[in-house]
Each structure stands twice: as structure tokens, then as C-alpha cells.
Design a protein around this nucleic acid. Structure first.
Length: 270
DNA sequence: AGCCAGGGTCTGC
DNA sequence: GCAGACCATGGC
């Protein structure tokens, strides 16, 4: 029945808590009892995990197939990917440590702005700034939830309008990114299909976007699983754990491996 | 109090 | 090209 509510699906090897709070998205909260709620794709999403079952309260099968299968990247064979990664003994340890982490396919603009905000910042405060950004500029969805603002809305705002966000020096970067988007100067199709270096270079023409923010945008917001964001933790991990670099067979999925390495490094390295 | 946070820009060599 | 100061803000 296509209009039946509370769609459920069996998904092995996915842990919602790890996936939603590993630092790739910033708009979900845990409500307890395996239930999580947040805003994604311009709507409020509730999702509950019980073992290998994902339950989507208020979501029918049609909407799940149209939106959430892609958002949660359920088309990728993660068992095969993990088996590939585990050919390397060090990477196997990282995979084992956070084996329920999965990458998400998020909207490009939201991802870009989120990771501009992430620079020299911590996850808790990133979430707070994004929450205030959406409440200030986003369209209301009811229940105190708001859409992520459109580029045109942010591009039209004055710098002083951002004061309530307490985002500091990042405000002018946000505005520059929004203006570039609103002007049609950032070609999403190009970002998805061009050679990785060229896609990154396009993003780095935005003020406040360097290699790390560009790579996060490509990985989380453009489905570029070969993009490899290098923050302080990854740099530490690469020095200590992979002095010869990642195994070559990992490189097409380096970004997915990066999620395991980041999680492992942050938890175990000094 | 001082350091760090999923960095980037700007300056000076 | 590359190191170092600086950037707002908040948590610890």
C-alpha cells in the first residue's frame, strides 16, 4: 500500500546514531528509545532504529523510495565495501570501531554552508549556528522546525542580519557562497562529474572555501565518494597510521574510508 | 586562564 | 611556496 504510513525497511550494518552524529550532518537530535528527528530535504524526518529495522514514522513507501533511499545511500553495497577496506589491517581496525557509520547524500548548498561554518569550530557549536541560521532565514515547517535557507534568501541578507547566529568571521563567507550560488556560478552538474581536482577548484573560488571544506562539500553534498577531506584528525591519523598513504584500491571510496578513520582517530589518538 | 575546535585568508619572507 | 598571525565564539 503506497499510502500506508510508518514505512519500515530492513537495513543491515547501519547505526543511525553513528551516521547522524559523526559530523557529516548537523540537524538531527536523538529523542531516545532509538528515535531521531531532524530536518532534511526540506521536511521534518523522524526515523527510528530497532536492530536492523529502520522505521520511518509518518513516511509512506512512495516518499521513502523517492527521497530517503537515496539520502541514506542504501543503494551502495556496504558489506562489499567494508570487506574491501578490511584487506588492510589498520583500516580494518577503524572499520570495526565504527562499522555502523554510513555516508549520506545531502543537498549541495546546505552541505557547503554547513562546512563553511565548521571551520575552526566544534560540532556542538556548528549545530547551534546552523539551527539559528535556519530559524532566522528558513521557511517554517511547523513544530519549531525550519527548512535550510535558499541561496537567494541568504544572498539578499545584510551582514548585520546574521548577528543573532553568533557565527563570527564566517558570516562574510556564508554570504559570498550564497551570492555565487544565487548567481548561478556554481555548476552542480560539473561538481558531480568533473575530475575531482577541477570540481574542488571551482568550490575554492568561493571566499572561505579551502581544500577541506571543498572536499567535505563534494563528499557529503555531491556524492563524490573519492573526495578525501583532511582535517587535523585525519592528518594525525595519516601520519601515525598510514605513513605510506591509503591503499590504492581504497582510493575510489577514500571519502567513505575517511569517515571510519576520522571516527577512529578522534576516539583513540591523542 | 588558556587552549582547542572537522580551516582559511592575508601578510611577509 | 611556505610559515605564522589572525580571525569570533564557546566549551572545557
Amino acid at each position: 500500500m503506497d499510502d500506508a504510513k510508518d514505512y519500515t525497511i530492513q537495513v543491515g550494518g547501519l547505526q543511525l546514531a553513528q551516521t547522524l552524529f559523526c559530523g557529516q550532518c548537523f540537524r538531527f537530535e536523538a529523542l531516545g528509545d532509538g528515535l531521531y528527528r531532524g530536518v532534511a530535504l526540506d521536511r521534518v524526518l523522524s526515523v527510528r532504529q530497532c536492530g536492523d529495522t529502520l522505521e520511518f514514522p509518518g513516511t509512506n513507501k512512495g516518499e521513502f523510495e523517492r527521497l530517503w533511499r537515496n539520502y541514506f545511500v542504501l543503494d551502495v553495497d556496504y558489506a562489499a565495501l567494508q570487506e574491501l577496506f578490511c584487506r588492510d589491517a589498520v583500516l580494518a581496525r577503524a572499520v570495526e570501531y565504527g562499522c555502523g557509520i554510513r555516508v549520506l547524500r545531502q543537498p549541495l548548498f546546505e552541505t557547503l554552508i554547513s562546512f563553511i561554518i565548521s571551520q575552526n569550530n566544534n560540532i556542538k557549536r556548528i549545530s547551534g549556528i546552523i539551527s539559528r541560521l535556519c530559524a532566522t532565514f528558513g521557511e517554517p515547517l511547523g513544530g519549531g522546525y525550519y527548512k535550510f535557507p535558499a541561496p537567494q534568501r541568504l544572498a539578499a541578507a545584510a551582514e548585520s542580519d546574521f548577528a543573532p547566529l553568533r557565527a563570527g568571521f564566517r558570516v562574510r563567507y556564508i554570504i559570498d557562497a550564497a551570492r555565487r550560488f544565487a548567481a548561478g556560478e556554481i555548476d552542480e552538474n560539473f561538481l558531480r562529474t568533473a575530475p575531482l581536482a577541477q570540481a574542488g577548484a571551482m568550490l575554492e573560488t568561493i571566499c572561505g572555501v579551502g581544500p577541506k571544506v571543498a572536499a567535505c562539500t563534494l563528499l557529503f553534498g555531491a556524492g563524490r565518494f573519492d573526495a578525501f577531506p583532511q582535517d587535523v584528525w585525519i592528518k594525525r591519523a595519516m601520519e601515525q597510521l598510514f605513513p605510506g598513504g591509503l591503499p590504492k584500491y581504497v582510493l575510489p571510496y577514500a571519502g567513505i574510508a575517511q569517515q571510519y578513520i576520522f571516527n577512529y582517530a578522534r576516539a583513540t589518538l591523542q
